[in-house]
């Protein structure tokens, strides 16, 4: 049964079987399971739950404004309700917010699309390469292993006025000045850095596809193109969805690359994280937290929609995981038939 081995997340029930109708609470040993899981939940609550709640609380408070007669800043915090959130969308700050929102979205869509295409291509090459396979894989990993700030400095060097990029192009483009060219510079640097991440995840997926499937396809007369579209892509889909989801979440909170490569306060590459940072760096923690919460909600919504639409196997256990497996089985069987 090659179909079953192709599943990265094998479930206990055979594909197509009716989902067993039992609730977790009634399972024998449920209490023990809850006990065993509780440390994880506790850690999660501490390191993920608490900061989110604390940030939300912070966003409801503001500083007193203005100086007293001898030039001192008034001390103390006061409760301002949702005023920081209203301020995010209003007036000049609102323009800046929507610009950052558009930048974040644009950078995310373009970089993730490019990285996915390049990553899959890299994975296919790495999968095929027989001689020097280990070398190629290690080589591809280098950009991913370099810290983002370092790669940003590296690319800043390439993109400076008399840098390598301009030497290759033979003209003087001022990449790091405010404008569309800065966006291009960030996209290039980000793609270079993170395409290998997608490549490696997809490669892991490729290695799980048994050779027999391809053999059967070849006997049936499927060409390379058909094999790619009808076998490879459907079978790596679950892995690809996870990889893209990770990249989406990562790209939406992009900060260090544009901050270091192009610089702060440049409209063309200012992202939502940079707004939150800017407020906090000027000791306005309340508005900073409000920006962070807005970004958090945006990321959560994108993740939710993405998982719902594409049914990532992230939530396998009940529901989504099982829904995809019969379809996967039919595709593979269809290819063999």
């Amino acid at each position: 049964m090659p179909v079953l081995t192709a599943q990265p997340f094998p479930t206990s029930s055979p594909p197509g079987a009716a989902p067993p109708n039992r609730r977790p609470g009634r399972r024998p040993g449920g209490r023990l399971a809850a006990l065993l899981v509780s440390p994880t939940l506790l850690v999660l609550a501490l390191v993920a739950g608490y900061p989110v709640l604390a940030a939300f609380r912070e966003s409801l408070f503001g500083k007193r404004e203005g100086l007293d007669s001898s030039g001192f800043v008034q001390e103390g915090e006061k409760f301002v309700g949702l005023r920081h959130y209203a301020a995010v969308f209003e007036g000049e700050a609102g323009e800046r917010f929507w610009n950052a929102f558009a930048n974040t979205t644009f950078l995310t869509v373009t970089t993730v699309a490019l990285e996915t295409v390049l990553g899959v291509a890299m994975a296919l090459v790495m999968h095929r390469a027989i001689r020097g396979r280990a070398l190629v894989r290690a080589g591809v990993l280098v950009p991913w292993a370099i810290p983002t700030v370092v790669s940003a400095l590296l690319w800043q060097w390439i993109f400076q006025a008399d840098g390598a990029a301009n030497a290759l192009l033979g003209r003087e483009v001022l990449w790091t000045t405010d404008g569309f060219q800065a966006t291009v510079a960030v996209i290039v640097a980000d793609t270079w850095k993170t395409a290998p991440f997608v490549g490696l995840l997809v490669l892991a997926g490729l290695q799980l596809i048994p050779g027999e499937v391809y053999e059967a396809a070849r006997i049936d007369g499927a060409g390379a193109r058909q094999q790619l579209i009808r076998i490879t892509l459907p079978l790596i889909r679950p892995v690809l969805v996870v990889a893209v989801l990770f990249r989406l979440l990562d790209a939406l909170r992009m900060f260090d690359l544009p901050f270091v490569l192009v610089g702060p306060h440049k409209q063309s590459v200012e992202t939502l994280s940079m707004l939150a940072f800017d407020e906090a760096a000027n000791t306005r923690y309340g508005p900073g937290a409000a920006y962070a919460v807005v970004l958090f909600v945006y990321v959560a919504v994108v993740a939710f929609v993405f998982v719902r639409l594409l049914g990532a196997d992230l939530l396998s256990g009940d529901g989504t995981g099982r829904k995809t497996s019969p379809r996967r089985a039919t595709t593979a069987e269809g290819a063999m038939a």
């Binding site: 400076q160 006025a161 008399d162 003087e172 001022l174 790091t176 000045t177």
Partner: peptide, 11 residues
């Protein structure tokens, strides 16, 4: 020069 708007001290 045009590239002066990319100059910090070091450049």
């Amino acid at each position: 020069p045009k590239k002066a708007i990319t100059f910090k001290e070091e450049e």
